[in-house]
Structures are given as structure tokens and as C-alpha cells.
């Protein structure tokens, strides 16, 4: 038989490093098509909505009444497409974990790295970094595209104006944290369909159900919902004063969702059979 040459092993004999795991997770992420589909969809939808919103507001500005003109938020409107990206980044975050279970890759992964917490941290590092970077690029891209299409007399925003930079950066932060939240959900649920359904349910369906209930009951819960928090974080005007969290508190709550599910998921990952 062909002999196995251990030479090539010795050349890179280095102690176990976190960077190895991060690199491996990045290799995994970039070598499946679903990653590129989901990212393309995010670009398309977010920039698409920004251009449509910019163009249509410019077109119909003259028909706006006084209140509409007074409360018009050129920053917020250009970032509206991020809502769709928040759903799509969930698919990406979920698949990073659930596809491993669906295909059995998790066995290869955990055989290569039996320290399961490290595997989850590496995954979270890669998913968090990718969704944050993509989120920021999209947020800034949508902002500049949207503003360039807002023609006078419709006003447009500049980063130097109050709260604008914070809102645009916030749009990317939301995407970054929701990517991690989705990863956490998938670590708990382990099935693609179940995890995506849960994620979309929390983002989209729960708020819709809440809105059908008396507002005295629904308001205190609604302000903790991710879509609502993202609305607050991407606006330069105060949304629903009193019934909303501040942008900073909102970001904290999203982080709590993300790291909370990851922590519980990590605990279960260590205990459960692969």
C-alpha cells in the first residue's frame, strides 16, 4: 500500500489554538452555497428597499401633509430594508449549526474538536463577525443609497446630523446580534426547519399576535420584541415615547437574547449525545 508520509504533519506541529478553530469555521461557512445565497439576498433586499423608498418619497413628497413632513425620518426610511435582512441573517445563523446536525457533519466536527464549548465559541465568533460586518456594510450602503435618491424638496440626512450615525451603526449591530441569536436558537433546537420557524416566529409572528391583543397587555411586551427594538435603533426620531426602550437598552436586550440562548445552547451541547 501507499505509505503515509508523516512529514507534512511535523511541518505544522503547533499547539491547539483558537485561531485554528476560527479558521476552520470560516472555511466551513464560506464553502457552502447557502452562505452566499443568503448574503446576496440580504444585499438585494436591503439596497432594493432603500432605493424604492428614496425614489418614491421624492416622487410623492408634494402630497405629504404637514404632520407627515414633520415626522419624516430620512435615515429611518432608508434603513427599512434591514428588517428583511434581519430575517435572512437568521437563516444563515441557524444553518451554521443545524446543517451540521442535518448532514451529520457535527460528528466530524466534534471528533476533531471534542472541547464542545470551544467549537460553539468559534462558531459564534465567525457568525457574529460576519453578520456584524455585513450588517454595517448594508446599513451604510442603504443609508447612502437612500439619501442619494431623496431629491429636494424632500429632505435628506447626513451622518453629521444628530443621532444619524448612531442609527446607521445601530442597523448593523442589530444584524450582528440577530445572527448570534439565530445561532443560539439552532444550538438549542438542532433542526433547520424547527429553528428557522422559531426564529421567524419570535421576530414576525409574536408581534403580530400581540398587536391583536389589548394594548395595555401587549405594549409592555412589544417593546422587547426584536423588530421593535430594531425600529428604535435605526430611527433618528424617538419612536413611541414611553412605550419603547432606548436604543442602548434595546441593544442590550438583543445581546441578552443572543448570549442567553448561546449560553443555554452551549450547556446542552456539552451534555447531549452528538
Amino acid at each position: 500500500m501507499t505509505t503515509l508520509t508523516p512529514e507534512s504533519l511535523r511541518t505544522t506541529s503547533t499547539p491547539h489554538q483558537k485561531s485554528h478553530l476560527i479558521r476552520a469555521e470560516w472555511t466551513k461557512l464560506r464553502t457552502v452555497r447557502s452562505t452566499w445565497w443568503t448574503l446576496s439576498a440580504m444585499v438585494l433586499v436591503t439596497l432594493g428597499v432603500a432605493s424604492i423608498a428614496g425614489a418614491s418619497v421624492s416622487h410623492s413628497w408634494t402630497t405629504f401633509n404637514v404632520i407627515q413632513r414633520a415626522t419624516f425620518d430620512p435615515t429611518g426610511i432608508s434603513l427599512k430594508g434591514l428588517l428583511f435582512s434581519q430575517l435572512i441573517i437568521g437563516v444563515l445563523g441557524v444553518l451554521v449549526m443545524s446543517a451540521e446536525y442535518g448532514t451529520g457533519t457535527i460528528r466530524s466536527t466534534l471528533a476533531a474538536t471534542p472541547q464542545r464549548t470551544r467549537v460553539l465559541i468559534a462558531k459564534a465568533g465567525v457568525v457574529g463577525a460576519l453578520s456584524l460586518v455585513v450588517g454595517e456594510v448594508l446599513s451604510f450602503g442603504a443609508f447612502f443609497l437612500g439619501q442619494s435618491l431623496l431629491r429636494s424638496p424632500a429632505p435628506h440626512a447626513q451622518l453629521s446630523q444628530p443621532h444619524v450615525l448612531q442609527a446607521v451603526v445601530g442597523g448593523g449591530v442589530v444584524i450582528g446580534l440577530l445572527g448570534l441569536f439565530a445561532l443560539g436558537i439552532a444550538t438549542l433546537i438542532r433542526h433547520s426547519a424547527g429553528a428557522i420557524t422559531t426564529y421567524v416566529g419570535i421576530l414576525l409572528v409574536v408581534p403580530i399576535i400581540l398587536q391583536t391583543l389589548p394594548s395595555s397587555f401587549s405594549q409592555p411586551i412589544l417593546k422587547f420584541m426584536p423588530f421593535h427594538i430594531s425600529d428604535v435603533m435605526t430611527s433618528t426620531v424617538t419612536v413611541g415615547q414611553g412605550s419603547s426602550l432606548s436604543p442602548w437598552v434595546g441593544a442590550g436586550v438583543l445581546a441578552l437574547y443572543a448570549f442567553g440562548t448561546l449560553a443555554v445552547g452551549g450547556y446542552l451541547l456539552r451534555r447531549r449525545d452528538a
Binding site: L9, T12, A24, T27, V32, T103, T105, R107, S108
Partner: peptide, 27 residues
């Protein structure tokens, strides 16, 4: 059980495994 993602190429499958354990691409 086949523990391999069907959407990934053979080389990429081995590459990520190699990376986790600091094994060279040549290998």
C-alpha cells in the same frame, strides 16, 4: 453515518478538518 455536508467539496471537507488540528494543506 456519512458525516459530510453534501454541498461542500471533498477538498474543503478535509481542509476544515485539517485546520482544526493544525494539519497542513499538503497533507
Amino acid at each position: 453515518a456519512k458525516a459530510i455536508h453534501p454541498g461542500r467539496s471533498a477538498r474543503h471537507h478535509l481542509q476544515y478538518l485539517a485546520e482544526t488540528n493544525g494539519i497542513s494543506r499538503q497533507r
